[in-house]
Design a protein around this nucleic acid. Structure first.
Length: 860
RNA sequence: GCGAGGGUGGCGAAAUUGGCAGACGCGCUAGACUUAGGAUCUAGUCCCGCAAGGGGUGGGGGUUCGAGUCCCCCCUCUCGCACCA
């Protein structure tokens, strides 16, 4: 224990002292008009879900440290904060707690603000927004109307994913393995008329522009590309035998058309009912009903047996008139292509399995060079190279791209089909049937049809009803009873609310004008500040949010609201913080704090199932920052969070590790306070190599190496190595102070000032405090960021490794001049006694000299 | 099945991008100071070996004076997509 009261590291007092300082002094308020050195930093805004845990902390601490770094480099930083405040969890929690979602959300937002303040995380708070605020969602509605007027929002009857747990429709993207992403209920299918955004109009651009995003992780771009799923092929029309209708199919292999021995329609295909023969009707209906009733989970299993039913109708191959049977099968999906395929069992494994199961003919139309294949004896579809066969005048052509084009040309000439590009991406289903979301601003009139709510009547507010539980707007007459804007007669409001991904698809634009009640945003400002220079968020948003935001940006550009194509110039995806989760077979999840010794259930002493998992309330494995903040302080949590590992990686929280970071801060505190007097005496003096002792020089070199490496690492988000570099420097400094009788005041001042400056973005509280201890009166945010002095990087002595046959045998410390002199190095290495001993009697074959590094003597 | 990214001490991880593997931190061991305290300080801590020395970055091969890093094959883990025609 220190005898001097003043020298205790009293983090509580320090943190209380500085907590409000940065905000009050406007360090984080962006200067809107000065865009010369602007930097728009943005973390994905949070869903206010209760209390934040240390895992959430990681996002904000990365952002806060990075922004402080930028501010210290003279950037005019915009780092705003908002809340993605609509959504089902609010409703569900509100139901559980018998409060209104609004009350629940507001309380959580208040908690978040308090936690940010405790962490020392500062934003440009004047721009704060919440998507559940009518002043925000009115622009959601306005945007909807603009999209509607451009044909980008439309209504269509569709088989939709219905979550029985949430009582609402889900977008395809929200269905994971056939279950609801949120509540894990098994998703059902229902026919409903729903609102869609026509994102498919932008499929090509969304795909192609990924190439522009040089500073996005490849992984994310790849995931998006896969999601969009472009494939080139042809659409071909097959005439029906005995009907006027045609079946249109999409295929990527039009070259295999002569091998099409049957057709398969999706069970939901509209033609099925019409063309199925009376004889097969019953079986067909049964199959269709079964397919519809079957859950996505079962139907989507790729490895399950093929099922299907012949419908008693035939199609005619457009190129040779061959009559082929039409089947229905659930392996053909209504949602992709046209919901119908020409089946080529010879060259498609799925069709092959189906043909074998139902005894359908297999005709190969591509023959491999060596061993010819034939339909009856094939054991799998042939997917390799070869030449066309059984394909009349195409026979003998090499299978491949060129031939595919020949087929497409041929079909096109005959008017039977054409080249076509298909996407896996579907239109974005945005309708939700719940209360806590943006009401869709449309009115349905029996006489005039569907019309937007006039813009001057926006926002269409959520009715301020007492919250009744699982109810949507369709059950609130005060809400849906309306007048038609056209005829003035009675009409009904649309009772759907929007998917919350709509809210988050443009919020980054609203920050520029969050208080503007006349327009969605100021285009001029937005064009100056966007794209976002650095966007940071979790990898879990790699597809949905980022794709939607890109789409909306492009749509707004086409409306003339924006002049850029992509919203986020640079993207960083940080990894989640995980923690051990315990589960008891009978008692469910058990909090780690309650687990009995030996990992036993506290209620029944059964051994618990253990799993390292993402922190979540439901798993009871969250670590609250409260205890750490109380025991060690915010700076310690910040330091540890950034030190524990590379920020893009998933990492397990280790409470023991926190202490090491605390120890470091304490050590630093002591060093600064003990040597502040000497250091401040050296203020204003320059440090030059000539005046330094050998010990001084060592510290000086280390200092400038550290500055150099930190400057490289900070911009790359390598905070973990920034921290370890500072720790190394501190170790060197401790050695120095222990070895030297009288430290150089100038050097010490430079070292301490540089250290605390570079640490301050990560640990801003102790940063401000120790900056004052060094005699400064203004914020450390105003300090000059240290630059590595080229002189300081020059070493007097360099360690050179001497290898014999690649094995390290000696390490020589040589003067810097010699370290770049190949001849001298070689001589010196050979002169070593240990080297002589080892090469005695051997012939030197070769000597490799790498200046500043090593000498390798190859001898045998 | 297809695609992507990983595998380095007891643990989290470093490695100037082909040049002393394990920096930094946790934990652990020993010691010092102590109203033995979950404080602080000092020393040690990849493995085998008393030592000289030898081995070592999932496994096997290769390129190279030299490989954690580059190439080929295999094992394994994580993630994304998954009957997409």
């Amino acid at each position: 224990m220190s005898t001097n009261e003043q020298q205790e590291y009293d983090f509580k007092a320090i943190e209380d002292k500085w907590r409000d300082y940065w905000r009050e002094n406007g360090f984080f308020a962006a200067d809107e008009d000065n865009t010369e050195h602007k930097f728009y930093y943005l973390n994905m805004f949070p869903y206010p879900s209760g209390e934040m845990h240390v895992g959430h902390g990681r996002n904000w601490l990365i952002g806060d440290a990075y922004c402080r770094y930028l501010i210290m480099h003279g950037y005019n930083v915009l780092n705003p904060m908002g809340y993605d405040a609509f959504g089902l969890p609010a409703e569900n929690a509100a139901i559980d707690n018998k409060t209104h979602p609004k009350t629940w959300t507001e309380k959580n937002i208040e908690t978040f603000r308090r936690q940010f303040r405790q962490w020392g995380v500062v934003f440009d708070w004047d721009r704060e927004l919440a998507t559940c605020d009518p002043e925000y969602y009115r622009w959601n509605q306005w945007l909807f109307i603009q999209l509607y007027q451009r044909g980008l929002a439309y209504r269509k009857a569709a088989v939709v994913n219905w979550c029985p747990g949430c009582d609402t429709v889900l977008a395809n993207e929200q269905v994971v393995d056939g279950a609801c992403e949120r509540c894990s209920s098994e998703v059902e299918k229902r026919d409903l008329t729903q609102w869609f955004f026509k994102i498919t109009d932008y499929a090509d651009e969304l795909l192609n522009d990924l190439d522009k995003l040089e500073n996005w992780p490849d992984r994310v771009k790849l995931m998006q590309a896969n999601w969009i799923g472009r494939s080139e092929g042809a659409s071909i029309r097959f005439k029906l035998d005995g009907f006027d209708d045609e079946i249109e199919v999409f295929t990527t292999r039009p070259d295999t058309i002569f091998g099409a021995t049957f057709m398969v329609l999706a069970p939901e295909h509209p033609l099925v009912e019409k063309i199925a023969s009376a004889e097969h009707k019953e079986a067909v209906d049964a199959y269709v009903n079964q397919a519809r009733a079957e859950s996505e989970i079962k139907r989507m299993r790729a490895d399950r047996d093929k099922t299907g039913e012949f419908i008693g109708a035939y199609a005619l191959n457009p190129l040779n008139g061959r009559k082929v049977p039409i089947w229905i099968a659930d392996y053909v999906l209504m949602g992709y292509g046209t919901g119908a395929i020409m089946a080529v069992p010879g060259h498609d494994q799925r069709d092959f399995e189906f043909a074998r199961k139902f005894g359908l003919e297999v005709i190969p139309v591509i023959q491999p060079e060596n061993e010819p294949i034939n339909g009856p004896s094939m054991e799998a579809a042939y997917l390799g190279e070869g030449v066309m066969a059984n394909s009349v005048h195409f026979n003998g052509l090499p299978a491949g791209k060129a031939t595919i084009h020949k087929f497409i040309e041929h079909l096109q000439e005959k008017g039977l089909g054409e080249g076509q590009v298909n996407y896996r991406l579907r239109d974005w289903l945005i309708s939700r049937q719940r209360y806590w979301g943006t009401p869709i601003p449309m009115i349905h009139c029996e006489t005039c049809g569907v019309h937007p709510v006039p813009e001057d009547e926006l926002p269409v507010r959520l009715p301020e009803v007492e919250f009744l539980g699982k109810k949507g707007l369709a059950e609130i007459p005060e809400f849906y009873q309306a007048t038609c804007p056209k005829c003035g007669g009675g009409a009904r409001r649309d009772t759907d609310t929007m998917d919350t991904f709509v809210d988050s698809s443009w919020y980054f634009l609203r920050y520029l004008s969050s208080q503007d009640s006349n327009r969605i945003f100021d285009s001029e400002l937005v064009n100056k500040w966007l794209p976002v220079d650095q966007y940071v968020g979790g990898i879990e948003h790699a597809i949905l949010h980022l794709l939607y935001a890109r789409f909306v940006t492009k749509a707004m550009r086409d409306m003339g609201l924006l002049n850029f194509d992509e919203p986020f110039a640079r993207l960083f995806t940080q990894g989640m913080i995980t923690h051990m989760a315990y589960r008891c077979k009978t008692h469910g999840h058990i909090g780690w704090y309650a687990v009995k010794e030996g990992d036993l259930c506290p209620y029944c002493d059964q051994p618990l199932h253990k799993e390292i998992a993402k922190m979540s309330k439901s798993r009871k494995n969250v670590v609250s920052p409260d205890e750490i903040l109380n025991d060690y302080g915010a700076d310690t949590e910040r330091l540890y969070t950034l030190f524990m590992g590379p920020p893009e990686r998933e990492i397990e929280w280790n409470a023991e590790g926190v202490r090491g970071s605390y120890r470091f801060l304490k050590r630093l505190w002591t060093i600064f306070n003990e040597h502040a007097a000497v250091a401040t005496a050296g203020k204003g003096q320059t440090v030059s190599a000539g005046q330094l002792s050998a010990d001084d020089k060592k510290l000086w070199n280390k200092l400038h190496q550290t500055i150099d490496s930190i400057n490289r690492d900070f911009v790359q988000f390598k905070f973990n190595t920034v921290v370890s570099a500072l720790m190394e420097l501190t170790n060197t400094l401790t050695d120095y102070l222990g070895n030297v009788k009288k430290p150089s005041a100038a050097l010490l001042n430079q070292a301490l000032e540089s250290m605390i400056t570079m640490l301050s973005p990560i640990c801003p509280f102790i940063g401000e405090e120790l900056w004052r201890v060094l005699g400064h009166e203004t914020s450390v945010l105003k300090a000059d960021w240290p630059k590595a002095d080229p002189e300081g990087l020059k070493l007097d002595e360099v360690d050179i490794v001497v290898q014999i046959n690649g094995v390290v045998r000696e390490v020589l410390s040589v003067p810097a001049a010699m370290a770049v002199d190949r001849g001298a190095l070689e001589q010196k290495a050979l002169a070593q006694e240990g080297v002589q001993r080892r090469i005695e009697g051997k012939t030197i074959r070769k000597i490799i000299v790498v200046p500043n590094r090593l000498v390798n003597i190859v001898a045998a």
